[in-house]
Amino acid sequence: MNDAAPMIDIRDLTVTFTGGRKPVHAVNGVTLSVQRGEVVALLGESGSGKSVTLRSLLNMHPKHRSRLNGSVIAAGQDVLKLSGRALADYRGRVASMIFQEPLLALDPVYTVGAQIVEAIRRHEKATLAVAQARALALLQKVRIPSPERRLQAFPHEMSGGMRQRAMIALALACNPQILLADEPTTALDATVQIQILLLLRELQRELGLTVILVTHDIGVAVEVADRVAVMYAGRIVETGPVREIIRNPRHPYTQGLLASRAHDAMSGARLDAIPGAPPDLAALPPGCAFAPRCRFSAAACLAEAPGSVAVGPQHSARCLRLAELAAA
């Protein structure tokens, strides 16, 4: 594989869940490519399809209850076509995932060490002693204090931050190239969040990981990401370098998200929330999904979904009125 090819290349991904009464269109044509060693944050509200997109990268959706179209290429492999042995080899070794709530994502009846050892031996023919030594090195790498002792600790015996470190160690057990993080700091308290984010960024640089991070917290995205992709109703509405998105958001939804932050709000002033609620994914409007909540929506917005328009280097947005709004 040459270095120029993107590490992750998602093209026109659509995910529809067919389990319920009405099909739910969770992801509607996501195209995203991530270079080797790049950190991309998927930003959006609950139900915007960010986690679903992330799970597609591991082909985790149940076959009989979901329909996936488009293509997902990661590290040169067509993920959606993988199955059985090849899929199991891909998961954990090429791409692995960090979950939101480490207490739930670690098995309560095994020690942290045993879980890491199991993950290593699942993919490699390592002896128990070798795997244990590697587990210890991993705990040191994620800077868990007194790692020898923590190897033998059960998840419930650790603090939240320590558990998330253990979860990261578990995800890195088989030296994956791609790390997928599903809201890795949402369940942690504020002081621990920043430590985990710093650790993630440091590990990413040290190991040259390609990272996709799902979050609804712009602060988290700013902290670790190189690039941000803002999702709304299963589409990427705006993508660009972090700095560009923060300084010069072009899509009204991104502008709304940035305005709603508590970060530089005046004490006593009302937060500038986006009115309305995200659309029902089982009955999406034909036009721009954000139009019903958009301050700038025009009649044309309701008619057809806007395509992606480049507004700067690496910066693009999906809005019909980009030019008019920029002029205004």
């Binding site: 899929l87 199991a88 070794r93 995932m97 979950f99 709530e101 699942r122 993919h123 578990l170």
Partner: peptide, 22 residues
């Protein structure tokens, strides 16, 4: 339906391993 079963699947465990271990 617990996350750790999902996590095991995400790290490449086969169905049988998941049943046996987790």
């Amino acid at each position: 339906n617990r996350d750790y079963v999902e996590a095991a699947r995400a790290s490449g465990a086969h169905g049988f391993t998941i049943v046996r271990v987790h």
